[in-house]
């Protein structure tokens, strides 16, 4: 009996220890999105930031939980499925919107794209599309980005 309890405790510990060395992709994406707001200027600075994530319910939940109650630029963050105004849109379908920081496939016109490189999350940027948008994205942010070959 004692042996069985010890075995169960050991297995539980191994499971817990496994999760320590890394963080979920969605949690890291949420943190990136949080920081992106600091490095982007919208021409009409909003009273609260709307982050729209229509395609990925898991990511939406992770971002919502991660950013709940946090302020950025002293403003609230609202994570929604869809909205009339999206300051940040994370989607595979990228609409033409020059006041939205679009995160999705660069080849579909998004400004930024998340990429997994060697089990680490990076982000790529298309400078040409960024120039055409009405957003000002800090060079501090762009110097950390993978620059798209077409930009």
């Amino acid at each position: 009996m004692k042996k069985r309890i010890l075995t169960i405790l050991f297995l539980l510990t191994c499971t817990a220890a496994q999760g320590q060395s890394s963080v979920s992709e969605d949690a890291v994406k949420a943190a990136f999105i949080f920081h992106f707001i600091d490095f982007v200027e919208w021409s009409d600075e909003p009273s609260e930031f709307h982050i729209c994530i229509p395609d990925d319910a898991n990511l939406r939940t992770a971002v919502s939980e991660s950013l709940e109650g946090k302020l950025v630029k002293n403003k609230k963050i609202l994570v929604v499925n869809q909205s009339d105004v999206c300051h940040i849109l994370v989607s595979d379908n990228v609409p033409a919107a020059d006041q939205t920081l679009t995160i999705g496939p660069l080849e579909k016109g998004a400004l930024l794209e998340f990429r997994v490189v060697n089990n680490k999350l990076r982000f790529a940027a298309n400078l040409e599309t960024i120039r055409k948008s009405k957003l000002k994205i800090s060079s501090q942010l762009l110097k950390l980005a993978i620059l798209d070959k077409n930009s």
Binding site: G19, Q20, S21, S22, V23, S24, E25, A27, V28, A30, A31, F32, F34, H35, S66, L67, K70, V116, N119, K120, L121, R122, L141, L144
Partner: peptide
Amino acid sequence: AAAARPDPTELSLEDLLNIMIT
């Protein structure tokens, strides 16, 4: 110790780029 670790939003962008993801 892992539970006491700050949540990812408290890390800098440079640190986030070096986090191993699952």
